[in-house]
Design a protein around this nucleic acid. Structure first.
Length: 423
RNA sequence: GGAGAAAUGGCAGAGCGGUCGAAUGCGGCGGUCUUGAAAACCGUUGUACCGAAAGGUACCGGGGGUUCGAAUCCCUCUUUCUCCGCCA
């Protein structure tokens, strides 16, 4: 959520910035400003009224004490009118506040200067490419065929037990999941992230805190009886740990990580996009989250990219990094880099990580602040990234490392798997 | 799931319906003293909003109510603790 002060001060620059998302926010922002003006007028009117009423209440008290009953009764009758006035002002102020908040919820984050304008994923910029795309042997298969050939993942069994998009991992397939999770967590720890195991279910306030609500209500599974949501990513519980927090000084840098399953309803996908592991309703992911001083968030973002690069190098997967254009960026992000690995048997790039700087957008909703040296409170920056999401990594590992007589496990993963080949 | 008790500032802990944004202690910050530190002493110490400022308003778990006036009374929700039941 954008800060209202920023809209008051910088309306034109915000409109300009949001154009990169391919939206014209001028009308929305003007509505906010208009409502804000009305709100301020009503608010000071009400404050004045309340000040009067407080004053009168005090006088009445003193009169009763000094025995001036009649005077007190007279004054008491007067307050009746003011009370009614207060009621109506209060409801006007509340209505305006609701309207302003609803408008603010509709405005996405403003892209940073280096974000390219654009409408869709076609306008994303490839900023680097690394690793060699292997040439596969005759008869190489896509991962869903490999998964059934070596009995690693059972999609049909998942349909029976739950439904489409909930695969069941078996034997070495299950072991590989566990190995990847441990590998990712250990690497995160080496990079200085503290591990958390958060709840896999969150309340409404947390959904609002990180911006899943109200924008993406339908993407989360909702447990109606308790009004809780299954997390779509560990970002939600991990970041919300710091909701309503004021960090005591300005030299903080908080780095946390956590593994969780992720649940996404993902309505409206079809075809080759959802084949095999490409898109699931439940998947595993290790997330890294950072809270940084605004002056240091840019550097932190770059560090996070290095961390993810390192993971992909160790897994010996060819990948590329995209700088997302305004139109393809998530609602809450100011700058996002996507990592894609090349899926050789499918001949396509698969997104495996998304590393974003939200600047103050989430912090504003979270009320996550810190104390500056001169004692003021200021919004912190939040960042997060997948490091990494498992299914497409597994797909790429199976496909890229397949040979005629089995699938080779990359060196870095062997201690975690306990085997070096799937055959 | 049943029965009770409680929720106050960073923490601990007072608080008769009016003078309570809230005593007191600890902690934090600034100072005096000291070669330095400790101790002692003095001062200061929440958040947000409106306002150029003066100043004003709101907040004592959340929401609602009674009252001229609520931290204090009533209703409701949530959470915590104790006891019982069930249970990995």
């Amino acid at each position: 959520m954008l800060e209202i002060q920023r809209i008051r001060k910088d309306r034109d620059a915000l409109v300009e910035g949001l154009k990169k998302r391919n939206i014209d926010a001028s009308e929305l922002l003007d509505q906010v400003l208009e409502k804000d003006g009305q709100w301020r007028a009503k608010k000071s009117e009400m404050d004045e009224l309340l000040a009067n009423m407080n004053q009168m209440a005090k006088q009445i008290g003193e009169m009763f004490k000094s025995g001036k009953k009649d005077e007190a009764e007279g004054l008491r009758a007067e307050t009746q009118v003011l009370k009614e006035k207060e009621q109506s002002l209060k409801s006007e102020v509340n209505t305006l506040e609701d309207e302003i908040r609803d408008l603010l919820y509709q405005i996405p984050n403003v892209p940073k200067a280096i974000v390219p304008a654009g409408k869709s994923e076609k306008d994303n910029e490839v900023v680097m490419e690394e690793g060699e795309i292997p040439t596969l042997h005759e008869g190489a298969m896509p991962h869903w065929d490999l998964a059934s050939k070596y009995d690693l993942i059972d999609f049909e069994l998942g349909v029976k037990v739950t439904g489409a998009g909930f695969p069941i991992y078996k034997g070495k397939g299950a072991k590989l999941q566990r190995a990847l999770i441990n590998f990712f967590l250990d690497e995160a720890e080496k990079s200085g992230y503290r591990e958390f195991i958060p709840p896999h279910v969150v309340n409404q306030a947390s959904g609002y805190g990180t911006g899943q609500l109200p924008d993406k209500e339908g993407q989360m599974y909702h447990i109606g009886i308790d009004d809780l949501y299954l997390i779509p990513t560990a970002e939600v519980p991990l970041t919300n740990i710091y909701r309503d927090v004021i960090l005591p000084n300005e030299d903080f840098s908080i780095k946390i990580t956590g593994y969780t399953p992720c649940f996404r309803r993902e309505a409206g996908s079809y075809g080759k996009d959802v084949r095999g592991l490409n898109r699931l309703h439940q998947f595993d992911k290790v997330e890294i989250v950072r809270l940084e001083h605004p002056d240091r968030s840019q550097a932190a973002h770059e560090e996070m990219l290095e961390h993810v690069k390192n993971l992909l190098n160790k897994l010996e997967l060819p990948y590329r990094i995209l700088k997302l254009c305004g139109g393809d960026m998530g609602f809450t992000s100011a700058l996002t880099y996507d990592f894609e690995v090349y899926s050789t048997a499918q001949s396509r790039w698969l997104e495996v990580s998304s590393v974003s700087n939200f600047e103050t957008f989430q912090a504003n909703r979270l009320k996550l602040r810190f104390k500056t040296a001169d004692g003021k409170t200021q919004l912190a920056h939040t960042l997060n990234g997948s490091a990494l999401a498992l299914p497409r990594i597994v797909a790429a590992l199976l496909e890229n490392h397949q040979t005629a007589d089995g699938i080779n496990i990359p060196e870095a993963l062997r201690p975690y798997c306990g085997f070096d080949k799937i055959d």
